[in-house]
């Protein structure tokens, strides 16, 4: 299983799309690692600098409809190769969410209130996700715990290390 913890990168906007996460011009790369420097290159957010802000992060906290747009799994891989295996948000675009679990990564949905609380606990926040107990443990200016629901199939994908390993065994 992957590591589901680390410092938080806050992306304070809804509808962040896959073109903002990884622009199409990098889709000509045939290795995941080659994508690494281009993470969030086209995302314009006040005070956000992808070149410096991504490095320390292990977890992303964001708003609603994260990962909308194209089906490119590159938008998941670019997090993976930057050692970010968890995105926590109010909601996700279907394909992005599926791609996360298919890669053995976590797309965690929390209520808008809980997301707000996480934002308020920043700007320096450490998160540890416990998938067995289905809780997000956050430690910033204060400490708090947030329960979440993980669909049993998604949990199996995470444990198996992704959909290919799961499907290869089962079908």
């Amino acid at each position: 299983m992957k590591k589901f913890s680390g410092s938080v990168l806050f992306l304070d906007r809804s509808d962040i799309n896959t073109d903002e996460i990884i622009p199409a011009k990098y889709l000509t790369e045939n290795s995941k690692l080659a994508l690494k420097p281009y993470i969030l290159e086209d995302l314009k957010l006040d005070g956000f600098n992808p070149a410096t802000d991504v490095q320390k992060a292990g977890v992303v906290v964001t708003r609603g409809n994260f990962g909308c747009g194209s089906s490119r799994e590159h938008a998941v891989w670019v997090f993976e190769v930057n050692d970010i295996n968890v995105v926590i948000g109010e909601g996700f675009a279907r394909i992005f969410r599926q791609n996360m679990f298919n890669c053995g990564m976590l797309a965690i949905e929390l209520s808008p209130q809980d997301i707000d609380t996480l934002f308020k606990m920043g700007p320096t926040l450490e998160i540890v996700v416990d998938i067995e107990r289905e809780i997000v443990q956050a430690k910033g200016s204060t400490e708090a715990t947030f329960p979440f629901k993980l669909n049993s199939f998604d949990k199996e994908l995470v444990k198996a290390g992704g959909w290919l390993a799961y499907a290869d065994k089962k079908y």
Partner: peptide
């Protein structure tokens, strides 16, 4: 439905998708 590369990979390989 549009899918990512892993779903596509399993689709090519096993003919299934979740």
């Amino acid at each position: 439905a549009g899918v990512g590369t892993t779903d596509l990979e399993v689709g090519i390989f096993k003919g299934v998708c979740s």
